[in-house]
Design a binder for these strands. Structure first.
Length: 421
RNA sequence: GCGGGAGUAGCUCAGUUGGUUAGAGCGCCAGGUUGUGGCCCUGGAGGCCGUGGGUUCAAAUCCCAUUUCUCGCCCCA
């Protein structure tokens, strides 16, 4: 056992894993370019108030999952537990809305939540997210949702399901809340302890409860969709129309309630059955009032976050082979002191000419060096010893075909360039 | 915060009712080739059996504690 290990809920991504991460990140970046989203990078931590005031005091994240600490100057900071509020903060702080009517931003960010780790849930994880500001057009909802769906398609997630709901706006949500509270009324004692608490603090969440007693008691509970105002209803209808036109399959889920209080109207979640209990691989929604709440001009917006860690787990479970390419490299094996000296020069020269090259620094035998070349997946091996030095040549070995030729040192570069095509 | 499972070699794991120097496969190193990889053969290195305490003539094995990991609840990515 090592004396030190990564803190609970965190993990190291070793070289055997990082190519997959790089691949998914690059697919995401390409997709963002295709859809017109530009990258934004915000700090890893923010003033605590940004989250406590805007995510909802009663949400699990704010009430028990934040990594909060005090600075020497006695200010409270929090490692970001989600990506939207920081992005909105930056959008407002730099008044991005003044320069462009619609701003479409994306981020690849580490997210921190103090939870008990389990399959697909880490205290530090990575989210791929987008946020689109400046339009309440339902077409933008559809665009954002379809972006996520196409991204999942592209990387090879074949079995995801899209859950869709509308959670109304400040105008109509109270109506539903009132109806819901009335419905529960004397059924309250049939609910689980948590839901009895939710009844007081955030009734909407009761709908999302997994407890069988609650599911039974709330089976006939009033659904938001029946209480939304005309505007929200029309908006939701258009979103569905566009999704259908784009051939994005979805399922309405009246019980879908997102984890933060800032959401309005459209809420959605992508789930996959490959992950066990943590089945959400992405989710998001519209938040038309958050920009104003954070201090900006009233600006409608919508966004989503995709869990990169869970995405990888799902792809593994589906046995999807990601196209990770390793570049052709040249391994230069030098024999003896003079061979080693020559190898140093050759490797340097190859690299200066843009050809990936490596060599041994542990004084191993030629045989051992060849084994290393093989393990590295080298395309070519260049062998140089006293014989070659005496004749200003090198032995150039094709590691795939095992063909080997003696070539003039001066022509090595040309040979490699020529045959690598 | 609450519940279940598990900590033996770098990795995946055996280890029989407690009984001498704790094993396998893979990986690693070396040799079989005096200057040549993959396949094969041979050999080698590498373990305070998570940590601390207890029971016992004797503990990887039984008991207790602790810690870490893991799975689940809650909630989410």
């Amino acid at each position: 056992m090592a004396e030190y290990s990564a803190p609970r809920g965190t993990r190291d991504l070793l070289p055997s894993e990082t190519p997959k991460w790089q691949y998914l990140e690059s697919v995401f970046r390409d997709a963002c370019a295709l859809y017109g989203f530009e990258e934004i990078r915000t700090p890893t931590f923010e003033h605590t108030e940004l989250f406590t005031r805007n995510l909802g005091e009663t949400t699990d994240v704010v009430s028990k999952e934040m990594y909060t600490f005090k600075t020497k100057g006695d200010r409270e900071l929090t490692l970001r537990p989600e990506g939207t509020a920081p992005t909105v903060r930056a959008y407002v702080q730099h008044n991005l809305g003044a320069a462009m009517p619609v701003n479409k931003l994306y981020y690849i960010a580490r997210i921190f939540r103090y939870e008990r780790p389990q399959a697909g849930r880490y205290r530090e994880h990575t989210q791929l997210g987008v946020e689109a500001f400046g339009s309440e057009d339902p077409a933008l909802d559809a665009e954002v949702i379809s972006f996520a769906a196409r991204f999942f398609d592209k990387v090879g997630i074949t079995n995801y399901a899209l859950k869709l709901n509308t959670i109304g706006c400040p105008n109509c949500r109270p109506n539903h809340r009132k109806a819901l509270v009335e419905y529960v009324g004397d059924r309250l004692q049939d609910l689980c302890a948590t839901c009895q608490d939710r009844f007081e603090r955030n009734p909407l969440r009761m709908l999302d409860c997994k407890d069988e007693r609650c599911k039974t008691a709330l089976a006939g509970a009033p659904v938001m969709a029946d209480y939304v105002c005309a505007e929200c209803a029309a908006h939701f209808e258009r979103v569905q129309k566009y999704l259908t036109e784009m051939e994005i399959p979805y399922a309405l889920d009246h019980n879908l309630v997102r984890g933060f209080d800032y959401y309005t109207k459209t809420a959605f979640e992508f789930v996959s059955g490959e992950l066990g209990a943590q089945n959400a691989i992405g989710g998001g929604g519209r938040y038309d009032n958050l920009v104003q709440e954070i201090g900006g001009a009233p600006t409608p917006a919508i966004g989503f976050g995709i869990g990169l860690d869970r995405l990888l787990l799902t792809l593994d479970a589906l046995a999807v082979e990601l196209p990770v390419d390793n570049p052709d490299i040249v391994f230069v094996a030098g024999m003896g002191e003079s061979g080693h000296e020559a190898a140093i020069k050759i490797v340097s020269n190859l690299r200066d000419n843009g050809i990936a090259a490596d060599m041994d620094y542990t004084g191993r035998s030629l045989k051992a060096q060849m084994k290393i070349a093989n393990k590295l997946g080298a395309r070519w091996a260049v062998i140089i010893g006293d014989d070659e030095i005496a004749t200003s040549t090198v032995a150039l070995r094709d590691m795939r075909s095992s063909e080997q030729h003696t070539v003039a040192m001066a022509l090595l570069l040309d040979h490699i360039k020529q045959y690598s095509r």
